[in-house]
């Protein structure tokens, strides 16, 4: 087995590419560090000088508002200089462009890349080719991983539920194409929840999904029974009316989260969504805006969690 490329020889974070292969103490450490930063974001002076003098590049090959903004805020609150690059991915020369872009930015003495790319493995690829002093944070690669999102979801769950051990968590929607779901599954199983369920029609469940350590359900009512946390995934519009799904009407009827279906879960169930939400497609407005929804809290926790991960990955560079 090859060494985990995101850890240094002492088992500390070097890059943050995927949850898979990280141990529970490290994930807990991230959550604890984020907890300490959560205070900072609520102060009048919202800055700490941890990354002063460092340059962080947000390199986004896919459009994003929420993730990019929270990364930017997190970097600024750590006193780093931030550069936002919205790069386009040309259809023919993606490979060269990516490597060339990387080396060009490196030549400008940047210290960290926060990268989002449409190809699975793009962050791994960059981590393999950057100079040794540069850290790479995966802000979403293809259908592979979105580890900072998963960590902010874990942060949310811990804040609202306490311990992980007894929890039943259901993830509902397009698991097949979801990098968020993959990272959440690894995080939840590593943190030792009682059960992870994934709920979707067979067209949206990846092959051998059970090998990820989850139980597969194709019926939302059955899958929601007695769960403590429900995570709804965003359904991309292009899946509708394709060979994946017949259309919004049938999807909402069978897999849309309504108050009535939610009643099957535990009474104190927490409802989450990585956003942006499609009201009336995967989730009813009454649920999204209701008392059990923590969707907006997730966004604000995102800043603290990303501060934690950035400072931990940076801290190992001979500070």
């Amino acid at each position: 087995m090859r060494a985990n490329p995101q850890l240094d020889e002492n088992g500390k974070l070097r890059h943050f590419l995927t949850i898979e292969g990280l141990r529970r103490p490290l994930l807990t450490d991230i959550l604890d560090t984020a907890e300490s930063f959560a205070g900072v974001t609520e102060r009048t002076v919202k800055k700490v000088p941890l990354l002063r003098g460092k340059t962080i590049v947000n390199l986004f090959f896919e459009p994003s508002t929420r993730t990019r903004t929270t990364f930017e805020l997190a970097a600024k609150r750590l006193s780093a200089d931030v550069l936002n690059i919205q790069a386009s991915v040309s259809a023919t020369t993606k490979g060269e462009t990516l490597l060339d872009t990387l080396h060009n930015l490196e030549a400008m003495h940047c210290d960290m890349f926060v990268v989002r790319h449409c190809d699975s493995g793009a962050a791994h690829f960059m981590a393999k080719h950057v100079a040794p002093h540069v850290a790479v944070i995966n802000a979403g690669d293809g259908s592979h991983a979105h580890p900072t999102q998963a960590m902010l979801d874990m942060f949310t769950i811990r804040r609202h539920k306490g311990e992980f051990g007894a929890l039943r968590v259901a993830i509902v929607g397009d698991i097949l194409h979801s990098r968020v779901a993959r990272s959440q599954i690894h995080a939840l199983t590593t943190l030792g929840v009682n059960e992870v369920r994934i709920i979707a029609p067979k067209t949206l469940i990846p092959a051998h999904a059970e090998a990820l350590g989850v139980h597969v359900y194709h019926d939302l009512r059955e899958g929601l029974r007695d769960v403590d946390v429900v995570i709804m995934l965003r359904l991309q519009n292009e899946r509708m009316g394709s060979a994946f799904l017949p259309g919004e009407h049938e999807y909402y009827r069978l897999f849309g989260l309504t108050e009535e279906k939610l009643a099957l879960a535990k009474p104190d169930v927490t409802v989450m969504h990585p956003g942006p939400i499609n009201r009336g497609v995967e989730i009813d407005s009454a649920v999204a805006d209701g008392p059990r929804s923590v969707i907006l809290q997730q966004v604000s926790y995102g800043i603290a969690v990303r501060m934690a991960i950035m400072s931990m990955a940076m801290h190992q560079r001979g500070e």
Partner: peptide
Amino acid sequence: HEGTVSTRLGLPGIP
């Protein structure tokens, strides 16, 4: 190959 590795890596699989 569409299987455990494609599922873990999020790479499009060939059944």
